[in-house]
C-alpha cells in the first residue's frame, strides 16, 4: 500500500548523552535532567528563552526535535509540512505529580496554571509546533512500551494522503529520574528503510 518511505535523520537522548544519526553530539556529567538540559541548550546555542518555562517532558522532546529538524534544514523561516507523531508510556505523569503536590494539602493549596497546562503530554508537540511554525497534524499516543508498527501505520496514512510531507515520529518518555527520547524523520527521501526492524534497531542502539 502506498509508496515506500524512508528515515532521514534520527536522534536519541538518554543518560546525559545525545546521539544524532548514531554519532555522539553531546555528553554531560549532570545527572539532574534540568541541569543537563540547560547545558545541552547552551552547547547547541538554541536561543529560545521559552525553553526555560517548559516542563521536563517538553524540554526533552524539544531538544530532540531541534536536533533532527535542524539537521534536515527544516526551519521556521520556511515552514514545512512536517507532522508530529509521538508516543510514550508515562504520559505527563512527571508534571501530574507536581500538580498533585500543589493540591494535596487544603491548608497549603497552590495549583498553578503554569504547571497545570503541562499535565498533558501533547503540550510538547505544541511547543515544537510553535517554534518551527508547524501548522500540522499532532498526535500523542500512549503504549505500554515502544510499538513501531502502530506509528508506522499512522505515519504512512499521513504521508499517503498527502496530509504531511514529513513526519517526525518517535518516543519521548520522562518519568521520575529516568528519561529517554528517540525521534526520527520519515519522508519519501532518505537512506534508511521505514520498517519496524530498522526502527527497533535504531531505538535499541
Amino acid at each position: 500500500m502506498g509508496q515506500p518511505y524512508h528515515i532521514r535523520s534520527f536522534c536519541s537522548i538518554q543518560q546525559e548523552t545525545i546521539l544524532l544519526n548514531g554519532k555522539p553530539v553531546f555528553k554531560s556529567e549532570q545527572e539532574d535532567f534540568g541541569a543537563f538540559a540547560k547545558e545541552a541548550y547552551q552547547f547547541l546555542t538554541i536561543k529560545y528563552p521559552k525553553f526555560f518555562k517548559m516542563d521536563h517532558l517538553s524540554k526533552l522532546a524539544f531538544l530532540t526535535a531541534n536536533l533532527v529538524l535542524d539537521k534536515e534544514n527544516i526551519t521556521p523561516d520556511e515552514p514545512s509540512n512536517t507532522a508530529l507523531v509521538f508516543a510514550n508510556s508515562a504520559s505527563s505523569l512527571d508534571t501530574d505529580r507536581k500538580h498533585q503536590e500543589s493540591i494535596k494539602n487544603k491548608d497549603n493549596y497552590f495549583p498553578s496554571p503554569a504547571i497545570f497546562v503541562y499535565t498533558l503530554p501533547n503540550i510538547c508537540l505544541g511547543e515544537i509546533s510553535i517554534k518551527y511554525k508547524l501548522y500540522t497534524e499532532n498526535s500523542f499516543f500512549i503504549f505500554d512500551s515502544f510499538q513501531p508498527q502502530k506509528l508506522i501505520a499512522y505515519t504512512k496514512g499521513l504521508l499517503d494522503s498527502k496530509k504531511a510531507e514529513n513526519v517526525l515520529c518517535g518516543w519521548v518518555e520522562f518519568d521520575g529520574k529516568t528519561y529517554k527520547s528517540f525521534l526520527y524523520l520519515v519522508s519519501a527521501k532518505g537512506t534508511l528503510e521505514h520498517t519496524e526492524e530498522t526502527i527497533l534497531k535504531l531505538y535499541n542502539a
Partner: peptide
C-alpha cells in the same frame, strides 16, 4: 495491545481519525 490517544481535548475525535487510518 491498546493504543491510547492522549491529545488533550481533541482526543475523542482524533481517536476516530486514528481508527480510520
Amino acid at each position: 495491545e491498546p493504543t491510547i490517544v492522549c491529545n488533550a481535548c481533541v482526543s475523542g475525535i482524533l481517536s476516530v481519525a486514528v481508527a480510520k487510518q
